[in-house]
């Protein structure tokens, strides 16, 4: 069956279905219970599943992520909501030193089936402390899995896969896509670490990370109008990284453009560019399209230019194709 839902409704449906399926799944976080989530993602769940399984917490990011770690060790499968990924800074010990390392530190004996859901506010006028994209920080911590759903269907499927995963997963949801509508099919394999080819193409490979996807799709249309046939890959998971998908595309196109909303310096594009240079004989240097190494600006006109737009992505495509106007 195929249903049309908004991105946030897809999150809500994934949570409800997983809670229905598995009584060990619980939700904790600021505003998740009675208010139904700051942006509505947990609406109706406290009423449906009760206060033992859906708990409002104080504003204590470290405490609630740690609570999730302990609850996971004691047999639950907690889904902890941290409102914006910027606020993960307050919880980093529990995320990076505890959740991520427990399996390794115990010689593989302990597993931490914890999901941390959090928002990337980029592109919504959220400014320096609510608009960052910190996936590269998270991806740099061995032991953490990092999912970045860019469509309503992925908001549903990736979250379900994350909840069923026995290791800690941070799901970076996109506020930019929050009200986007999309078709959601019930029967899709729940795979961790699988990228999606959104558009086949022959001339170059464009890898989009997280919420940049609609701009990348628009760029593909514009490029097609200029005779450039772009293959668009939506990475979906920063870790596990589906390098096989990227490499097989690069072996066809020989050209790589990467777009993301994280700061360019040491961002996801840096890793992809390095791998491409190490492992594939490219026809042209890699081009990254990403924000400069500054905090996120608030003023709409600055924010508009700070995050990569379709025009900048098309310009990168021209450049990687050796077009003089790139």
């Amino acid at each position: 069956m195929v249903t049309e839902l908004r991105y946030w409704q897809a999150v809500n449906r994934a949570l409800a279905e997983e809670m229905e399926r598995d009584p060990r799944v619980v939700l904790v976080g600021e505003d998740v219970g009675t208010p139904g989530g700051a942006f509505g993602a947990t609406r109706g769940l406290r009423e449906r599943f009760g206060p033992d399984r859906v708990r409002d917490t104080p504003i204590s990011e470290l405490g609630i992520v740690g609570l999730g770690v302990g609850a996971a060790l004691a047999g639950l499968r907690p889904v902890v909501e941290v409102m914006f990924n910027d606020f993960l800074t307050l919880a980093l010990d529990q995320l990076a030193n505890q959740a991520a390392k427990l399996r390794f530190m115990t010689g593989g004996r302990a597993r931490v089936p914890l999901v941390v859901r959090t928002l990337v506010g980029a592109g919504k006028g959220t400014g320096p402390q609510h608009g960052q994209s910190l996936e590269a920080w998270l991806g740099h911590v061995p032991g953490l899995l990092v999912a970045m759903p860019a469509t309503p269907a992925d908001a549903y499927h990736l979250l379900r896969a994350a909840i069923r995963c026995d290791d800690p997963v941070v799901v970076l949801e996109s506020l930019r896509q929050w009200n986007l509508r999309g078709q959601i099919a019930d029967e899709e394999p729940l795979e961790v670490g699988r990228a999606a080819v959104r558009r086949p193409g022959a001339d170059l490979t464009l890898v989009s990370v997280g919420g940049a996807l609609p701009r990348a799709e628009r760029a593909c249309e514009l490029a097609a109008g200029e005779g450039i046939d772009v293959e668009l890959i939506d990475l979906r998971w920063l870790w596990p990284l589906d390098w096989a998908c990227v490499e097989s595309s690069l072996r066809k196109t020989g050209r790589l453009v990467v777009v993301h909303d994280a700061v360019g310096f040491l961002g996801p594009g840096a890793e992809l560019a390095a791998r491409a240079a190490e492992r594939v004989a490219l026809a042209a240097p890699v081009v990254r399209v990403a924000p400069p190494r500054t905090p996120v600006p608030f003023a709409p006109s600055l924010e508009e230019r700070y995050f990569p737009g379709a025009e900048r992505i098309v310009a990168a495509c021209r450049k990687v194709m050796g077009r003089s106007d790139g």
Partner: peptide
């Protein structure tokens, strides 16, 4: 750590076991 004996882990980070024990207690309550 020895999960079979209820030892959820020593810890290299001061105070880190406090939220973890709190979370285990939440699981026991639930």
């Amino acid at each position: 750590a020895d999960l079979e004996r209820g030892i959820l882990g020593a810890n290299g980070i001061v105070g880190a076991g406090i939220p973890i024990a709190t979370g285990a207690a939440y699981a026991f309550q639930a």
